[in-house]
Amino acid sequence: MNDAPLIPPPPAPNPADRHSLWGIHALWEQLLPMLPELSIEVVDHIESTNQALMDRLRHAALKAQGRELRADDLAPSLLVAVQQTQGKGRLGRSWESAPGSSLTFSLSLPIHRADWSGLSLAVGVAAAEALDPNGHEIGLKWPNDLWRVDGPGRGRKLGGVLIEALQVGEQRFAVIGIGINLRPLHLPQNVQEAIASVSEFEPDLSAPQALARICPRLAQRLQDFERGGFAGIAAAYAQRDLLRGHAVTTTDAACPEGESLGVAEDGALLVRCNGEVQRIVSGEVSVRPLAAAPR
């Protein structure tokens, strides 16, 4: 009989710290000069990063009524979700998200500039520049979408931007949500929209790597926007404008169909309709490339 004492097995390793896996400390150090007092949080599951940050701001706004605000209530906050279960897009649409296949995050921060015209376009420019610095793969579709370019005036949705606003005390805050498809998504059969993913041109890019690329460029473009509005970013947008020079359809009753002439320096879409140039500015208007006639 072996009387040697039993040696217990080594303890199971602790789950890897998600912030280490995402390289959050290095990202925080890079962003801090541009976004002072920034906090960053990564969560495994959440209904909506935008909704969570909006709820926090609403709580801060209630505190502001009682003059209880602290400095960290007004600090920028970056919230990243490994999986977002009830993400929302423009016009109340849902945004599909799957672990490892998507990057979903939101950034809340005060924007002091009075005129926010073109802010969503500036954010789209930043994300496209970060993921496709050469400008060959990603186009921008007014006003909130990143598309994989399939040809002149043609493409498939790759990502989207959703911006919400809230007044907190004397500060006006933006909550900027970004969702990017990194891998192909398996959508329900009743969803007909053609979807693209970053893996089509960069198959090995992970969600942490995509975040590390996008956030510094986003912070830089937000600084540009604070200083000069969209006018200083308009030329960069024009280089990726998927609609410019092509026939489009819109839900604007005054201009149901026409030719996109590009985007003005205030972010308005210019469409030639019935011989006249119409400015489309409403966030409730949907614009899409006009489907080519079958040959």
Rank of each mutant, 00 (worst) to 15 (best):
Leu103Trp: 11
Ile195Tyr: 08
Ile195Pro: 12
Pro36Ser: 02
Gly159Phe: 14
Pro256Asp: 04
Ala293Arg: 14
Met1Glu: 10
Pro15Glu: 09
Asp3Gln: 03
Val287His: 08
Ser117Phe: 01
Gln189Phe: 02
Ala268Pro: 05
Asp115Trp: 00
Ser39Val: 07
Leu6Gln: 12
Ser106Gly: 14
Gly118Thr: 02
Ser101Asp: 07
Lys157Gly: 14
Ala194Gln: 14
Leu242Arg: 08
Tyr237Gly: 00
Phe225Pro: 07
Val42Asn: 02
Ala75Ser: 14
Pro15His: 12
Ser20Tyr: 09
Ala291Lys: 08
Arg227Val: 13
Glu276Lys: 09
Glu226Asn: 03
Ser106Leu: 13
Asp241Trp: 01
Ile163Val: 13
Phe105Trp: 14
Pro203Trp: 02
Lys63Pro: 00
Leu107His: 10
Ala64Arg: 01
His25Tyr: 05
Asp44Trp: 12
Cys215His: 01
Leu242His: 07
Ile280Ala: 01
Gly135Pro: 11
Pro188Gly: 15
Ala174Ile: 11
Val277Gln: 03
Val263Arg: 03
Pro99Lys: 07
Trp22His: 05
Thr104Gly: 08
Ser102Trp: 08
Ala292Gln: 13
Lys63Ser: 07
Arg183Leu: 13
Ala264Tyr: 00
Glu193Asp: 07
Ser286His: 14
Pro143Tyr: 00
Leu185Asn: 04
Ala16Gln: 15
Leu222Asp: 03
Leu182Gln: 12
Pro203Lys: 09
Ala291Tyr: 03
Ala291Cys: 05
Pro110Gln: 12
Val285Lys: 04
Arg279Trp: 03
Gly232Ser: 12
Gly124Pro: 06
Pro143His: 01
Glu129Ile: 02
Glu37Gly: 04
Gly135Ser: 05
Ser102Cys: 10
Ser97Val: 06
Val198Ser: 04
Gly124Trp: 03
Cys273Pro: 07
Asp224Arg: 03
Leu38Ser: 11
Ile24Asn: 11
Asp204Leu: 07
Leu162Gly: 12
Arg113Glu: 15
Leu121Ile: 06
Pro99Gln: 08
Arg295Asp: 05
Asp266Pro: 01
Val287Gln: 07
Ala236Met: 00
Leu91Gln: 04
